[in-house]
Design a protein around this nucleic acid. Structure first.
Lengths: 101, 101
DNA sequence: CGCCTTTGTAAGCATCTGCTTACGCTTGAC
DNA sequence: GTCAAGCGTAAGCAGATGCTTACAAAGGCG
């Protein structure tokens, strides 16, 4: 769920979308953006800290790829809250139907 | 997906968890926190702007409740990225199996 | 009307963020 | 060893963020 701490930034969400199609090295990721390469490098570091990305070294390159588990965990939290609220709504509705309120 | 813009803050996530059990007025929500009531009021406004909450007036009170659709939408985006990445992994693996790489 | 409750808003402030430029480190090639 | 490629890190800065206190607005009640 710490993935949510990190995915508020649109640039970082975009990085996630890019990496969903396949792993990529830092430079190749940075090419997708107008921002400077160090700026993207900082975003990558934040995403790694948040557990959303994993790095691997390949010579002088650093290859980043998604950690699906982190994304899934965050998604699960969101849908769990939605489900709880829907259940609360259902309970309220059936109580109304039965004249309990 | 703009829900993600807003759910990076732990206080706001906690508000979401509280409201998953049922709608509540601003004061009752604030009682769950150490922060001042105005601080919580500001968080509530941000959550409403982000589409995560909806307000209703009841006399002098303002009753907040979750918007399940916003949460679901954000959760769907996350799981979609996880799924895309898993598919990419599968494709890579089968390519390796068939000696295409 | 006068007053209390409930809540949002304004102003101010310390801190966090995200960006840029400049620099340093590591790896592979020659 | 020397050089270039690829990237992270440091420093600095403008703007966003989250908090507080003080105040104002709106509704119910005597």
């Amino acid at each position: 769920m710490s993935a949510l701490d990190v995915l508020a930034d649109p640039t970082r969400r975009r990085i996630v979308e890019i990496l969903a199609d396949g792993e990529l090295n830092a430079g190749a990721i940075a090419e997708h953006f107008d921002a400077s390469r160090p700026a993207i490098s900082q975003h990558l570091g934040i995403l790694v800290d948040g557990g959303v990305l994993t790095v691997r070294r390949d010579g002088t390159r650093r290859i980043y790829h998604l950690d699906a588990a982190a994304l899934t965990e965050a998604g699960d939290w969101l849908s769990a809250q939605a489900t709880r609220w829907n259940r609360t709504l259902d309970a309220l509705e059936s109580a109304l139907d039965q004249g309990e309120i």
